[in-house]
Design a binder for these strands. Structure first.
Length: 582
RNA sequence: UCGGGGAUCGUCUAACGGCAGGACGCCAGACUCUGGAUCUGGCUAUCUAGGUUCGAAUCCUAGUCCCCGAGCCA
């Protein structure tokens, strides 16, 4: 029985009384953390825990990476002697760029993790890796193969057939060394030779059939420039990079599970001092989106979205622009757990986690998306009153603000119905509604244009309802948000929804490519929206709630005079649900 | 036909031979100056078949289904 559970080391999460409801405070199931604890208790690595997050700088980070980042940094943070490195796995110059290095740094930092001085590049180890390769050759454990790509592929065999040994497999150490040096020296063309490990062409594990260590690639590397023309393969560079950095637990995804014997082979035969342990977990899948680098790239390059940071993208850059908070993302990663079962997490859980965080922290304001003029006939022309409204109804520490009110205000078109359906709480001809924090109005007349479209409502206000409370305590079921016409800020508002119209866009059962399953309604742009004046002060990235509508952020596309808002996510709408049922 | 993994409510995940629990979701209700939030109640699961055992999600045997693997990608 384990009882020396690491004391509440995460001091950030003060445990509230058992009765208190602490949303998201449940201990996240995490078998990787349990294995690390086991190693710790067994006295391995002198009590050290060292993890790493090893992205290849060839694309933008997405929410699946967030799971890995939270896992790796989280495990390190749990233990006193824990560290987590950021390592760029840059062994393929053909696809990697500095732009991605920069975006990855920014995204990890934004998510809330700090790697301090522990930033590394696999390319930092090229000299060392090469020296080890020569050593392997001298030990008779590696050889230069001069077969063509095609011949090597054929020789590898298949799932059902063993491989065949290369005719070059038994070259002498001296010959191998000379050839390897020529490869490195730049005298040999791409594809003419490779360095392979001499393991076992008869292995049932294809990874062990003399895997490639180095290939010739006359390509410019984003960091080493033209210093190298041979580059190490992942299977070789990764375990050795881990060992060089003294990583204790090398956490990766399931598809590397059958690379583990090879991982161990390299660490052992390179006689590395540190012996990291590879542990595999299931990568994240989410409903209504795609999470593979390839598909994300296609969405960007095919022009299906506006870029890597399109607010509908599951990239960290996209989520950030959309208005997701790092706190919500971390809470989400905590809740989904870590296991070896590949599943699909319902995006509703992500959305729930987001709303939970935003509800607690986002200040409230008012804005009208589809304005309808409402004129208060018994309100004096030119008279302006400022109502004091709470910035957060559940947290007085957010204070109040003064919101100007005048004779003409805008309300949401959806909040008026000439012929109300059943269970309608909002405004209707002859009916009353409360204008949030201001007063109660009654609709006396519906003004239409020649075409019969409603252009404005003529109303009167109850002078005893100043501030919104009914003087006689009569029940006013509906409350509308509003914006004073003469004080309103004009804005563009972008409404986002799930990018895809189906749960699993990658599933072939749909009979069409996932790009055909993009929901055209996933982006709706509204112009002529009206905002209360206090919103002019909002900066990009500061979340706020537009009451009754949802959570929003200012998009960098806007200007102070003409703000652009992104709707991060709508409020839960139980009326839409009953209305939908009819 | 080979190798490596995995199967528990609709979804994610606990239970490590001893009452199948939580979260999301869904349904119903209460409350509310956001049809939000909050609160209450309810819903649904151990892949199959055998076996061991007083007792099996857990151990054994045999199946079934799903994922990954034949890049000079990572």
């Amino acid at each position: 029985m384990s009882d020396e559970r690491p004391a509440p080391s995460e001091a950030s999460e003060p445990d509230t009384a058992p009765s208190g409801s602490v949303p998201g405070a449940e201990r996240a199931p995490n078998f990787v953390a349990d294995l690390v604890d086991d190693d710790l208790r067994a006295g391995k690595h002198d009590g050290r825990v060292a993890t790493r997050f090893p992205p290849e700088p060839n694309g933008y980070l997405h929410i699946g990476h967030a799971k890995s980042i939270c896992l790796n940094f989280g495990i390190a943070a749990k233990s006193a002697k824990g560290t987590c490195n950021l390592r760029f796995d840059d062994t393929n110059p053909a696809t990697e760029e500095t732009e991605y290095v920069d975006s990855i740094r920014a995204d990890v930092r934004w998510l809330g993790f700090d790697w301090g001085e522990r930033e590394h590049f696999a390319s930092d180890y090229f000299d060392r890796l090469y020296a080890i390769a020569e050593q392997l050759v001298e030990d008779g454990l590696a050889y230069v193969d001069s077969q063509s790509t095609e011949e090597i592929r054929k020789g590898r065999g298949s799932f059902y057939e063993k491989g065949k040994e290369s005719p070059f497999r038994d070259r002498s150490v001296a010959e191998n060394l000379a050839l390897l040096r020529k490869m490195r020296g730049g005298e040999l063309p791409d594809g003419s030779h490779v360095l392979r490990a001499k393991i076992d062409m008869g292995s049932a594990d294809i990874n062990m059939r003399d895997p490639l260590l180095y290939r010739i690639k006359h390509a410019h590397h984003h960091r080493t420039g033209d210093r190298w023309c041979i580059y190490p393969m992942y299977d070789y560079a990764h375990p050795l990079s881990d060992a060089i950095e003294g990583i204790t637990h090398s956490i990766c995804t399931l598809e590397f599970e059958d690379h583990r014997p090879l991982y161990d082979w390299f660490v052992a035969n390179a006689r590395m001092e540190h012996r990291p342990r590879q542990i595999e977990f299931a990568r994240l899948n989410l409903t209504y989106t795609v999470l593979s680098k390839r598909r994300l790239q296609e969405l960007v390059e095919g022009g299906h979205v506006r870029g890597w940071d399109d607010p509908r993208m599951p990239t960290l850059a996209g989520l950030r622009r959309r208005g997701y908070t790092p706190e919500a993302l971390r809470a989400f990663c905590d809740r989904i757990g870590v296991s070896k079962k590949d599943g699909v997490v319902d995006v509703a859980l992500l959305e729930h986690t987001l709303r939970e965080d935003l509800n607690a922290r986002a200040p409230r304001a008012m804005g009208v998306l589809r304005p309808l003029r409402l004129v208060i006939d018994n309100w004096p022309e030119g008279h302006v009153e400022r109502f004091s409204i709470a910035n957060h109804p559940e947290d007085p520490s957010y204070g109040t603000r003064e919101v100007p009110f005048s004779r003409v205000v805008y309300i949401e078109r959806d909040d008026f119905a000439e012929v109300p359906p059943k269970k309608w709480f909002r405004l209707q001809p002859g009916g009353e509604i409360r204008l949030r924090g201001a007063c109660i109005v009654r609709c006396n007349e519906v003004v239409k244009d020649a075409a019969g479209a409603i252009v404005e409502l003529r109303c009167t206000w109850d002078e005893g309802s100043r501030g919104g409370a009914a003087p006689d305590n009569r029940r006013i079921k509906g409350t509308s948000h509003w914006v004073s016409a003469e004080h309103a800020l004009d804005a563009e508002v972008r409404l986002y929804d799930r990018l895809f119209s189906v749960e699993n866009p990658s599933d072939e059962k749909h009979g069409k490519p996932y790009t055909d399953l993009i929901d055209p309604a996933s982006l709706e742009v509204l112009t002529g929206c009206k905002l209360e004046p206090s919103l002019a002060a909002k900066k990009a990235g500061e979340p706020f709630q537009l009451e009754r509508l949802g959570y929003f952020v200012v998009d960098p596309d806007g200007t102070p005079e003409r703000p652009v808002l992104n709707r991060t996510i709508g409020l839960k709408d139980s009326y839409a649900k009953i209305a939908g049922k009819t």
